[in-house]
Simulated assay, not measured.
Amino acid sequence: GGATALIAVIGSDKIHDLGFFYVFIPVGVGVLIMLAVALIVNNLAKSRKYPEFWF
């Protein structure tokens, strides 16, 4: 999270031109990667079920 903020502040003009849209790209991709890893790792064993409940 700190690196995302730091890059937004000291980044190049291309990053500054993105504005708030820049936040959605790294944060959104990071969330999707973490969710995919959690789903894969926690569902490897047959005795585990992740997530227990979806909405």
Rank of each mutant, 00 (worst) to 15 (best):
F53N: 10
G28H: 01
A3G: 11
K49A: 05
M34E: 07
V37A: 12
N43L: 15
V31M: 10
F21V: 10
A8I: 00
I40D: 12
I15T: 02
I25Y: 03
G28L: 00
P51Y: 00
P51E: 05
V23S: 02
S47K: 04
I7P: 00
P26N: 01
L6D: 12
Y22D: 01
N43D: 15
F21D: 14
F20E: 15
F20G: 02
A5P: 03
F21Y: 10
L39S: 14
A45E: 14
Y50P: 03
Y22R: 01
F20Y: 04
F24W: 09
A45F: 12
V31S: 14
E52I: 03
A3E: 07
L18A: 02
Y50R: 08
F55T: 13
Y50V: 10
L44C: 15
K46C: 04
P51C: 09
V9N: 03
P51R: 06
Y22P: 00
L32W: 07
K49M: 10
M34Q: 08
H16P: 00
N42F: 15
N43I: 05
V29W: 15
G1H: 11
I25K: 02
L44S: 15
M34P: 00
V37N: 02
I33R: 06
V9C: 02
V41S: 06
I10M: 08
G19R: 01
V27L: 03
N43T: 08
K49R: 07
G1F: 04
W54I: 15
S47R: 09
V29F: 15
G19S: 12
N42V: 07
L32M: 09
A45H: 12
W54V: 08
V29N: 12
G30W: 02
K49D: 08
I10Q: 13
L6W: 05
L32P: 02
I15P: 03
M34W: 15
G19Q: 04
V41D: 06
D17V: 00
I33M: 14
A38L: 13
P26W: 01
A8T: 07
F20D: 04
V27N: 03
S12M: 10
E52M: 10
V41I: 12
V31A: 10
R48Y: 03
M34F: 14
F24P: 01
L6Y: 13
L6G: 02
G11S: 09
A38W: 05
K49S: 01
G19L: 04
P26I: 01
K49W: 03
I7E: 06
F53L: 13
I40R: 06
G2C: 04
L6A: 13
G2M: 08
N42Q: 14
K49G: 04
F55A: 01
L39Q: 13
G11N: 12
F21W: 12
K14G: 13
I25C: 03
K46R: 05
V29P: 11
I33H: 02
A3I: 06
S47Q: 09
F53I: 09
Y50W: 13
K14T: 11
L32F: 15
Y22W: 06
L35H: 11
V41H: 08
F24N: 09
A5R: 13
I7Y: 06
K14L: 08
I7M: 00
P26Y: 04
